[in-house]
Design a protein around this nucleic acid. Sequence first.
DNA 1: GTGCGGATTAGCT
DNA 2: GCTAATCCGCACG
Length: 221
Amino acid sequence: MSEITKLEDSKLSKKFFERETHKVCRDLLGKYLVFQNRDNFKIGRIVEVEAYQGFEDKASHASKKKTSRNEVMYGAGGYYYIYLIYGMYYCLNIVTEKESYPAAILIRAIEPTYDFTRDLDKMSVKEKRVLGSGPGRLCRWLDIDKSFNGVSVEGEGLYVTPNIVRTNVRTRSTESFSAEASKNNRCEIVTSKRVGVDYAGESANNEWRYYDVTSSYITKK
DNA sequence: GTGCGGATTAGCT
DNA sequence: GCTAATCCGCACG
């Protein structure tokens, strides 16, 4: 029998993110992003991410110089980097690696698995895709904005847990089980070029997008 | 101060 | 497939 734990107690620490970026990308797939505040409690399974890493990556905001916008990327791993794109959508990144090496992982798609204010069980895959498939959409669903920029992953409002999350929509309760105890959390990880970075010259050819090819919630095959 | 363009999305052809 | 929407960071002057 798997061990039931309080969800907050199983959240990933900064240490998890202070590692080599591509390794963290692979390890993040299949884990759960949790958003919670007084009025909301929402969970999604991470199924698609992209790495933006180092000084040579022309697709990365940190390829030029350190500015007030990208400075979080230069800091230690384990903090959120949020930016506004096209004047309309926020994008959620988690900074990786050690201090002064700029790197972050863009969360591109999550599969909604719980929402205190919605009955996800009654939604079609198509409807759920609109909530969590795409970096702009998932931030809109989770109410993530610039206020999370520079915030630690060890905070209360937004965190990642490796545990399987079981929810009961009727009673609005959740339980978490250790990932090792479950056989339902398999990922088939595939890499590709990153989306929307054609302007980045040679860097655009890097296959730094990682996704679970078995998921119906990825942005593209 | 001005101008450009983007780690996107929705809606239409 | 094409393009409008809509803001701000950043380079240049």
